Amino acid sequence: MTGKRLWAKRIGVSAAFILIGIPLLFLLSAWIGSSIPRNSDWAETQDGIEIFVGSNGIHTEIVMPIDSEVIDWRGQFALGDVSSPNLSYTHVSVSWGEKAFFLETPTWSDLTPSVALNAMTGGSGVLHVAWYVRPAPSEDFRPLRIGRAEYERLVSQVQAQLVPEETRETYAGYSYYDVFYDAVGTYHIGNTCNQWTSDRLADAGIKTGSWTPLPGGVMKWVPNMETP
């Protein structure tokens, strides 16, 4: 085999590894990392505050009652920032992600190579806030009951993610009930929107995976309530 052919073969093998091997290694590490629990001895509080953990197949979210003894979220997020502020909302959801990735990829089919590359190499964070009316449990929208102290820590975790109101920008959401706000943090492949969700839950003391870059790594720790 000539030197030119040998180099061509090596380049081909290297390209195949990059295209196939690296994604497989990422998926394997994500599966392993998400299977290692944090707060492994945690259990639900049957008479506690009900929250939800939801997934749309690309992003996960934490959903909380609008008003409780701990906080009224209307004092934190202005309902006037959404286009239909007068509906009978009962819950608010929060999730975090890279600005372009979050604003331009509501579903996997919207993802483009340029947006994906920018997200993997680092980008500024935004908080996605959506308002819901009496959300029902489902396979992709799962309830958890947590203690008051855990909820207080969760609330503090969410509040700490926001850029101060006087300096943060607001961006239109996907629909009439949601909005985006500038948030702290840098998005990259090791710190994804789904990692943000599990970090907030873990810091509140709730059981979840250690490294959860994909939505399934978050949802695997939330019991799936059987629906009719």
Rank of each mutant, 00 (worst) to 15 (best):
G3L: 08
I11W: 07
I11M: 10
P23C: 06
L24G: 11
L24N: 05
F26G: 11
L28M: 13
W31H: 06
G33Y: 07
I36W: 08
P37A: 04
P37H: 06
N39H: 13
E44Q: 13
D47A: 13
F52I: 03
S55C: 04
I58K: 01
M64Y: 04
P65A: 00
S68H: 10
W73F: 08
R74W: 05
G75H: 13
G80H: 03
N86K: 07
L87S: 12
S88G: 04
T90S: 14
V92G: 08
V92M: 07
S95N: 08
S95R: 07
F101W: 11
E104K: 14
T107K: 09
S109A: 14
L111I: 15
P113S: 09
A116Q: 00
T121W: 11
G123A: 09
W131F: 13
P135H: 04
D140M: 01
D140W: 05
R145L: 04
R148V: 15
A149H: 11
V155C: 05
Q157A: 14
Q159W: 03
Q161A: 13
V163D: 10
P164D: 13
T167A: 09
T170M: 05
A172G: 10
D178P: 02
D182I: 08
V184D: 03
V184L: 13
G185N: 05
G185L: 03
T186A: 00
W196M: 08
T208S: 09
S210A: 14
V218H: 11
V218R: 09
M219F: 08
M219N: 01
N224E: 15
N224K: 15
N224I: 07
M225S: 15
E226D: 13
E226N: 14
